[in-house]
Amino acid sequence: MVARSTSPIFVGGVPCSGVALLGAMLDAHPGIVCVSSPLQSLAALWTCADRSGPLLETAYALRCQDVRNAFSNLILSFLEAAGRARGKSRVAEATASNLLVFPQLGALFPGSPLIHVIRDARDVVASRLERCGPAGEEFEHNGSVCEGSTPARSTCRARAFARQWVDAMAVCPMMLADPALSCNYVPLRYEDLVRAPQATLASLFASIGERFDSAAIPFRSAVAGDITPRHDSVGRWRQDLDQDLLGAVMDEAHRTLLELGYLPHEEPV
């Protein structure tokens, strides 16, 4: 359980899984400011420096901890400056791709909560398909280009998004398997956040060492203005995904959806 209430809060997840929503909700808290920073690139830099560990120790009299401190101070200087500008004492950084550097953030900030917003892959894909525009345009994902007719391209995109979701979910067991990371890892369901925001946030704030302020609902944030979680965004895939699109998602994500409890065990593929 996270005890410190000054350590920065990091939020990540796959795109369109509710990271921005949670960021705005955190920002509505009177003691928390949600900022954007060059976090991932700096954490990746630390990884690069950390790989030179033996060299740094031998030739530069630098211990791993010294290198870690230099990089965590560098990141903090960005986060805290943004926090000071808004007059709040605690900083949250909510960017989907933070998920990719959760292990690094866990090492750099041992007291920081790492909140992973998890959403049903089918809704994520429906949301991303809507966001990425007409399927008639060329689309490239991980070096492969989706080609063919418009429906074929949409299916290709859906498959790519679902595969990305599955890959990202691999972070869950990785975080849970490492005791140093699991103690600060906070998986949070988007569906809970939307259906029962008050109870979900109360529980979340308790886990990150903050008092829940019910005055923050409805959420009014300097980052995103009024935020009204849309109940119809849960299960939207039933309206938005046709049989082909759903089939593509399930081909990729069925097993992981099952593991995460998004599918009843008897549901056919």
């Binding site: 401190n69 560098l74 960005f78 500008a85």
Partner: peptide, 22 residues
């Protein structure tokens, strides 16, 4: 949030922190 001067100062500080022990 962060100004250009603050960002520059933060990077200088980090590099200084890394090279000072030597």
């Amino acid at each position: 949030g962060v100004s250009r001067a603050q960002a520059r100062s933060a990077f200088r500080a980090a590099l200084r922190e890394l090279l000072t022990p030597l």
